[in-house]
């Protein structure tokens, strides 16, 4: 189980352009990249979508952790590739699907690495979510790394009792995850109950309308980013609908006995 993957989704306070950006236009950027990757089934476009993110990562000084999340994503990416290719999709199509996944991981990895959970919570409240819900969401985001470390400890504890996760048939292996999953769930429940009690003891939910200490303000640069991103999205949709883009699909696929 790799914890690197979670590192690449964890916020680290830094002073860069992306860190300073309002979470709303930043989310729009991530969403736009993701939406474009969905409407284009084209290996070249997806490669471009992945490449344009590299300068963003560089500018946000998070290269090492971004590589971590990409590396963590490779196992799932490889599964996506082989599941497509081995079930009769062409080589290029399988690669396209894999790239789409990596574009998604990368876009949201950048978003979460550069957005503090507090800003995220404020943004969610701004778009109309009740405080209790936005609080729940940001708390979950915060807890992900903790739970990842906990999962590793549980795996270690059970392996110390002779559990071998990587031996046996597929069904046996799935069964072997029971000793991992139950402690993980039980401890998550225990933790949330304790958290809820601690919150209540500190007056959480005591007043209907709470005045946030900090508020979000869209700066001029934030508006510029939001407008540019919207234009890129509109242009992307327009081009996809009106212009033929070469597909580059060479048609290579695994010959299956029952045909493609």
């Amino acid at each position: 189980m790799s914890l690197n993957m979670f590192e690449g989704f964890k916020f680290k306070r830094k002073d860069t352009l992306l860190h300073r950006m309002d979470p709303r236009p930043k989310f729009l950027i991530a969403l736009t990249i993701f939406l474009l990757s969905l409407i284009y089934v084209n290996v070249l476009v997806l490669l471009i979508l992945l490449t344009v993110q590299v300068p963003l990562v560089y500018a946000s000084k998070s290269m090492r952790r971004w590589f971590g999340s990409m590396r963590g994503g490779t196992i799932l990416a490889a599964m996506i590739f082989f599941m497509n290719f081995l079930t009769g999709s062409t080589l290029v199509f399988s690669a396209t699907m894999t790239l789409r996944f990596l574009v998604l991981v990368s876009a949201f990895s950048i978003f979460f690495m550069t957005t503090s959970p507090d800003d995220l919570g404020l943004a969610l409240e701004r778009i109309g979510l009740p405080y209790t819900l936005s609080f729940t969401f940001t708390t979950s985001v915060r807890l992900v790394p903790t739970i990842a470390i906990e999962a590793q400890t549980i795996v270690d504890a059970q392996r110390s009792r002779g559990l071998e996760l990587d031996r046996g048939s597929v069904i046996e292996r799935v069964r072997k995850y029971i000793p991992i999953l139950i402690p993980l769930i039980v401890s998550a429940i225990r933790r949330s109950t304790e958290l809820a009690e601690a919150l209540e003891s500190r007056g959480f939910g005591a007043v209907k309308h709470r005045e946030p200490l900090a508020t979000l303000r869209m700066k001029r640069s934030d508006w510029a980013a939001a407008i540019t991103t919207t234009l890129v999205l509109v242009a992307g949709v327009y081009v996809q609908n009106t212009m033929p883009i070469p597909s580059f699909d060479t048609g290579i696929r695994i010959p299956l006995p029952w045909g493609p």
């Binding site: 906990e150 400890t153 549980i154 270690d156 504890a157 059970q158 110390s160 009792r161 029971i178 000793p179 139950i182 402690p183 039980v186 401890s187 225990r190």
Partner: peptide, 10 residues
């Protein structure tokens, strides 16, 4: 034996 029993009881 690990520190926290909740990490292994199932």
């Amino acid at each position: 034996v690990f520190q926290n029993p909740d990490h292994q009881l199932f």
